[in-house]
Design a protein around this nucleic acid. Structure first.
Lengths: 171, 171
DNA sequence: ATAAACGGGACCATTTTAGTCCAGATTAGA
DNA sequence: TCTAATCTGGACTAAAATGGTCCCGTTTAT
């Protein structure tokens, strides 16, 4: 297969597997041990990842006896970008773009700006893949378009346009 | 600033800075020490990165006294993807997609396929940014369009257009 | 009360990354 | 031919990130 450039951390991988499992049982409240068994991922790890997803607002948790986890919203409305955000968090493209020091080279630092463009494009494509698709539940492409727009206008279906606006605003 | 998801390793960052410096002096043959001074990057590190770029075919080297480095081809024809490839090398998206073991979960492994799509989209956008743009030398967008298409028809320059087509077609 | 579950975070081992250094090969110029 | 400047390859170490485990406190149905 073609060489790839983006490395998804193993934790993120686990997250999608777990989310996929939840997506398959939308109404159920699955406990961490139950999910560990279904996914064959180590129980402590499952627990850890679910906690992260909970903080990220992607899953809803119920505590106490018979507690467990379920998706916070329909699988079609959870984008790959949202998953990545929850797991990897905001990451700067280059030290240069985030930091403020040692960048006293003449024109060199027009560099950062072009990477921005790359990242926006990437982000756009990430918004166009839903958990439902990742889980293989939704063979229809780009299903989340309408949904996400409705639920969260800030990031939603118009993500691409919004991002493009951001870009020019920041530039 | 907007949160980003892709982290570019520091080495890759250095690489773009070095390549940008070379791009600014297309005809010159700059030595590693000279580049180290211009970029304020540590000399040993500069040397290391340049060696990698040489192996990756992005830079041509001249040995011996008065030796040095220069771009192997015009800055417009070097894509961000090529730089990433040289530095980071082929990386699998998920362990799942590369490995063969421990993936005996039922339907879970429809997962890999959707990530592929994400990665292709990313790759496409990576092809649409040239070193010239990264270096801030080419304010005109998508300059490598014709070039790279000519060099490698399989991945060529219509990437952006193709991307746009993908999106609107599926909407 | 109790047992099963989530929540937060400390903790360590392993891997990856960054950066340095050295010895060998190459070549222009004196 | 000799020398000095340069690239080439790889070994090596220190630091940081990552993956994974464990513990203890809180919550809650029975």
């Amino acid at each position: 297969m073609v060489p790839f450039m983006i490395r998804i951390s193993r934790m993120t991988d686990y997250a999608t597997v777990l989310l996929a499992a939840l997506a398959r049982d939308p109404e159920a409240c699955l406990s961490a041990p139950a999910l560990a068994e279904r996914t064959r991922i180590g129980m402590p790890t499952v627990s850890k990842v679910l906690k992260i997803l909970q903080r990220g607002g992607l899953v809803r948790s119920t505590r106490g006896l018979h507690g467990g986890y379920s998706l916070a919203r329909p699988a079609q409305t959870i984008s790959a970008a949202a998953i990545l955000d929850a797991l990897e968090g905001p990451v700067a493209v280059t030290d240069c773009s985030a930091g403020q020091g040692h960048c006293e080279i003449e024109t060199t630092c027009g560099v950062g700006q072009a990477w921005q463009r790359v990242n926006l494009a990437i982000r756009r494509s990430l918004y166009d893949v839903s958990l439902a698709q990742l889980a293989g539940l939704d063979t229809q492409n780009f299903a989340l378009r309408g949904f996400e727009q409705q639920l969260n206008p800030a990031i939603g279906g118009r993500a691409a346009a919004a991002l493009r606006r951001d870009k020019s605003a920041d530039a």
